[in-house]
Computed example of a mutant assay.
Amino acid sequence: MAKIFCVANQKGGVGKTTSAVNLAAGLAKVGQRVLLVDLDPQGNATMGSGVDKRQLELSVYDVLLESASIQEASIFSEKCGYHVLGANRELAGAEVELVDLERRDQRLKAALEVVDKDFDFVLIDCPPSLSMLTLNGLCAAHGVIVPMQCEYFALEGLTDLVNTIKQVHANLNPDLKIIGLLRVMFDPRITLQQQVSEQLKSHFGDKVFNTVIPRNVRLAEAPSYGLPGVVFDPSAKGSQAFVEFAKELVQRIPTL
């Protein structure tokens, strides 16, 4: 049975897509069968996985409108070692089209149930806003992985996200919970980041992943080559950290 996790944070620019594509590549490296679902109309996770969003014949848009299955719409990225259910600008229109449809927040969940046995992990890269697309992701998921920077405003954004998850848990998806907080773009030389990191650990305890993703130039460069950092430069500190994170996540599964 596939473990389905949203990579979500309502604050923009915290490295959600970088975390999603590198975690997918890291999990593939340690022998897991992975599907990455891009729910962001910008299609950054699609492009960052070596798939050209402009060339997509079928995308997550078609899956949400039930005109294609995940088997038909997903593409295996040879370079990265995982399957991608891609997105492009078309997806922005899905917001409007889904409003009048039945089960509008359960479309992705229903589609994923069909491919449940084909994957070990399904990672969903959510847009930064709480939209119908994000809601589809949260309704389909078993849990949420929250990438966050150790900065003051990130803590405020985290409060909003926790409240959103509670509401979805109460009303739409009783299985949903926070799997863990992933500290990203971390620079140990900055005192504030260390302080926020300690605050997170004291408040959330073992919900904070042990692995810390350092601020790393190679991770930032990788998307311009259409690859996750883990594939682009496996020896970089950031890439190695994501592989360690993948291993930690696999180890945690039995206890979740």
Rank of each mutant, 00 (worst) to 15 (best):
A236D: 12
D40S: 08
R183K: 14
G31R: 07
M185N: 13
Q32Y: 03
L101K: 15
N216S: 11
D38L: 05
L35N: 05
A92K: 03
Q55N: 11
S224V: 14
V208H: 03
L182V: 15
V21H: 03
C6N: 14
P254K: 00
I179H: 02
R54I: 01
D52F: 11
Q251K: 14
V30K: 08
G43H: 06
L192P: 05
A220H: 11
Q42I: 09
V37N: 05
L27I: 04
G229D: 05
A92T: 06
V21T: 13
L192Y: 06
I145R: 05
K166I: 07
L58V: 02
L219F: 11
V7C: 09
V96H: 08
A246Y: 06
D116I: 08
E151M: 04
Q199R: 13
F204D: 08
D206F: 02
Y82R: 04
Q149E: 15
N163A: 13
D206V: 07
I253R: 00
A45V: 12
M47E: 08
G137W: 03
E102C: 05
V60K: 00
A92Y: 00
L27R: 05
V84A: 04
L101T: 14
L181T: 11
L135V: 11
E244F: 08
E72Q: 15
L249E: 09
A92W: 00
G157L: 03
Q106W: 12
S224F: 10
M132W: 06
Q251T: 11
Q240K: 15
N210T: 13
Q193A: 14
I178P: 04
A110R: 04
C150L: 08
L101A: 12
M132D: 04
R218E: 14
M1E: 04
E156M: 05
R104G: 14
V184H: 07
R107K: 15
E248G: 08
V60C: 01
S67W: 00
F76P: 11
H169G: 10
P127W: 05
A68E: 11
T191V: 15
K29H: 06
E102Q: 12
G13K: 07
A73H: 09
R252K: 13
D118P: 07
Y61H: 10
R33C: 06
P128A: 06
G50V: 01
V243I: 15
E102S: 13
S19N: 11
Y152C: 02
Q10D: 03
L64G: 08
C6A: 14
A8M: 09
G26K: 01
A73F: 11
A170T: 12
I4L: 03
V230S: 09
P254Y: 05
Y225H: 15
D175N: 09
L158H: 00
G143V: 00
M148L: 15
I179S: 02
N9H: 13
V21Y: 06
C80H: 01
K237G: 01
A8G: 09
K207V: 06
V21N: 06
R107Q: 15
T211Y: 03
P188G: 05
L227Y: 09
C150S: 13
V60Q: 02
N136I: 01
P214I: 03
N171K: 14
K109R: 13
A246C: 08
K53R: 12
T164K: 05
D52H: 12
E198Y: 07
A25D: 07
G93Q: 09
A222S: 15
Q240W: 06
Y61L: 01
L98I: 14
M185S: 10
K207C: 10
R218A: 09
C126D: 08
V114P: 06
L172I: 01
